[in-house]
């Protein structure tokens, strides 16, 4: 599925750069509905696990202060063209998604 994630992993020299965009509301729980005045409940990604060939490289722990539709970029060494890079997130409501792309 992975409709919420877009990612690209590119190899340059000995470094793989991963850039990803996740579609998510990242609601802080502080905003109010303009019409009703009710608070909009918090809904945000808490963890993003980034793996290289099944081995964890970066674990991002996020609070609601990460922007809506989060962007995440990181770099690692030891990768080569064609390797799997996977990104998976889980939010405070237990919703999740993941995506695997190949290093180019």
């Amino acid at each position: 599925m992975a409709k919420s994630i877009r990612a690209r992993a590119t190899l340059k020299g000995d470094t793989v750069t991963v850039k990803s965009l996740i579609t998510h509301v990242m609601e802080t729980g502080l905003r109010k509905d303009e019409k009703t005045g009710d608070k909009i409940p918090a809904h945000y990604i808490q963890e993003v696990t980034c793996e290289h060939n099944g081995k964890e490289v970066v674990l991002a722990q996020w609070g609601p202060a990460v922007s809506k539709n989060p962007y995440l970029s990181y770099e690692f060494t030891g990768g080569k063209s064609g390797d799997d890079v996977s990104i998976s997130w889980v939010d405070n409501k237990g919703e999740k998604d993941s995506l695997t792309v190949q290093v180019k």
Binding site: L59, S73, Y74, E75
Partner: peptide
């Protein structure tokens, strides 16, 4: 961000 040994000292977000 928790980084493994092979991760470089770089992260970027918004």
């Amino acid at each position: 961000f928790k980084l493994a040994d092979n991760a470089k000292g770089f992260v970027s977000t918004r």
